[in-house]
């Protein structure tokens, strides 16, 4: 059986909120390293990979690896019944039909218990190769969210160019064009507001803004986001948490071959 206790229900709430618009049904794979999830959107353009490490739970008990097939809309409904500060415990049998969620509120001694039905999900698992990215940009997640939202008003796609000088997000659409450039800088007082660029070679790629705006829903998870790019491979957008991560991979838009 599985029993995993999370000090703050808010963590799971935010994780599920971040991915529920991209993926409808997916498996939460529980094993010794923690609770992991990998899923693609319907069109197979983007992939989300999430890990909540076992260290993040106290305790984390698992007798046998188990895949919990969950409808994320249903899970969201149940998680709405939890407050961010509630203690959350996930429980499931070895071959479960349901996942049980218990929310404990220390302040007013309230215990809420919910169960959601699980489903059989036949999922393809993709092997994500270790990649040395040509450019890794870390920046405030709120800043990235703002840029994506702003540019999305003008165009469907954004070109991201990283060079030694900085990173430039630009787009052009029917009504006109726009661009935002961030230069590398270090904020000593508030390190989370720094922009860092690690670069081995300049890169320029084009991506769908619709997807990026969608990824930005994970901004609540972390104040810093890392964008990793190499020419002709999917973009990696990573939100790191204390004991885990949510990573989004987005396939680029490419020019015609002919």
């Amino acid at each position: 059986m599985l029993e995993a206790r999370l000090e703050q229900a808010g963590v799971l709430k935010k994780v599920v909120d971040a991915i529920k618009d991209l993926v409808q049904d997916c498996n939460f794979d529980c094993n010794d390293s923690g609770i992991a999830l990998q899923a693609m959107d319907n069109s197979h353009v983007a992939l989300v990979s999430m890990l909540l490490k076992s260290e993040g739970f106290s305790p984390y008990r698992l007798d046998r690896n188990v895949a919990l097939g969950v409808n994320l809309t249903s899970l969201t409904k149940v998680l709405r019944c939890a407050q961010n500060e509630d203690i959350l415990t996930l429980k499931a049998e070895d071959t479960p039909d349901t996942l049980s969620l218990v929310f404990e509120n220390a302040e007013n001694d309230r215990i809420s218990e919910y169960e959601i039905k699980l489903m059989d999900i036949d999922q393809e698992h993709l092997g994500i190769p270790e990649t040395e990215y040509a450019a890794a940009i870390s920046m405030p997640s709120a800043e990235f969210q703002r840029i994506c939202r702003d540019l999305n008003q003008l165009s469907e796609s954004v070109s991201i160019e990283a060079s030694k000088e900085g990173v430039k997000f630009s787009c052009s659409g029917d009504i006109g064009s726009g661009s935002v450039t961030l230069r590398q800088h270090n904020n000593v007082d508030k390190p989370d507001l720094s922009t860092k660029i690690e670069l081995t070679e300049p890169v320029a790629l084009t991506f769908s803004l619709k997807y990026l705006v969608n990824f930005c829903k994970a901004s609540a998870l972390s104040s810093v986001v890392t964008l990793s790019l190499s020419n002709e491979v999917p973009l990696l957008v990573e939100y790191a948490m204390g004991s885990g991560f949510v990573r989004f991979y987005l396939a680029p838009k490419i020019g015609e071959e002919e």
Binding site: M40, S43, V45, G127, S208, P234, A251, K253, I254, G255
Partner: peptide, 16 residues
């Protein structure tokens, strides 16, 4: 006909 084509992640990452 013209313009960029959106690639898919499965073109890059292969199913295990």
């Amino acid at each position: 006909l013209k313009g960029n084509t959106q690639a898919r992640v499965i073109d890059f990452f292969k199913p295990v």
